[in-house]
Deep mutational scan, measured.
Amino acid sequence: MLYVKVKTEDGEELVLEVEGMTEDEIREELAKAGFKIEEIEVYEVEP
């Protein structure tokens, strides 16, 4: 499983499960949803 931890400019932290997306695609999708991203951390969790 691939997850991203996202910190927004307003200090909110989100953890999202993503599969088959690049970091650029993740940033693009979050921007479309109205999030202003300060930091993204991508990590993989073994089942």
Rank of each mutant, 00 (worst) to 15 (best):
M1G: 08
M1L: 14
M1V: 14
M1H: 12
M1P: 13
M1A: 09
L2A: 06
L2K: 15
L2F: 14
L2G: 04
L2V: 08
L2C: 07
Y3L: 12
Y3E: 03
Y3K: 07
Y3R: 06
V4Y: 06
V4Q: 00
V4E: 00
K5I: 09
K5G: 02
K5Y: 09
K5P: 01
K5Q: 04
V6C: 05
V6E: 00
V6R: 00
V6A: 04
K7W: 12
K7G: 02
K7R: 11
T8N: 06
T8M: 13
T8V: 04
T8S: 05
E9C: 05
E9T: 12
E9Y: 10
D10K: 10
D10V: 04
G11Q: 02
G11F: 01
G11W: 01
G11S: 02
G11T: 01
E12P: 03
E12T: 13
E12A: 12
E12L: 14
E13H: 09
E13C: 15
E13W: 13
E13L: 10
L14E: 01
L14G: 01
V15S: 04
V15T: 07
L16M: 10
L16Y: 11
L16V: 06
L16K: 01
L16W: 11
L16A: 01
L16F: 14
L16T: 01
E17R: 15
V18Y: 15
V18P: 00
V18G: 01
E19K: 11
E19C: 15
E19S: 14
E19I: 14
G20Q: 05
G20Y: 10
G20V: 05
G20T: 05
G20L: 06
M21A: 06
T22I: 02
T22Q: 03
T22D: 06
T22S: 09
T22G: 04
E23N: 04
E23W: 12
E23V: 14
D24A: 13
D24K: 10
D24F: 10
E25F: 03
E25G: 03
E25K: 05
I26G: 00
I26A: 05
I26F: 03
I26S: 00
R27F: 07
R27E: 03
R27D: 01
E28H: 09
E29L: 15
E29H: 14
E29V: 14
E29T: 12
E29W: 15
E29F: 15
L30Y: 05
L30W: 04
L30S: 00
A31Q: 13
A31I: 13
A31F: 10
A31Y: 10
A31N: 07
A31S: 11
K32L: 08
K32P: 00
K32Q: 08
A33E: 05
A33G: 04
G34Y: 02
G34D: 02
G34K: 02
G34T: 01
G34H: 03
F35E: 00
F35L: 07
K36S: 08
K36D: 06
K36Q: 06
K36T: 06
K36W: 05
I37R: 09
I37F: 08
I37Q: 07
I37H: 06
E38D: 12
E38L: 15
E38Y: 14
E38R: 14
E39P: 02
E39M: 13
E39S: 15
I40P: 01
I40T: 02
I40K: 01
I40L: 08
I40R: 01
E41H: 10
E41R: 09
E41V: 12
E41W: 15
E41D: 09
V42G: 04
V42Q: 03
V42S: 04
Y43P: 02
Y43M: 11
Y43T: 05
Y43G: 05
Y43S: 08
E44K: 07
E44M: 12
E44P: 09
E44I: 11
E44V: 11
E44R: 11
V45M: 09
V45W: 11
V45K: 11
E46M: 14
E46D: 13
E46C: 08
E46R: 07
P47D: 08
P47K: 03
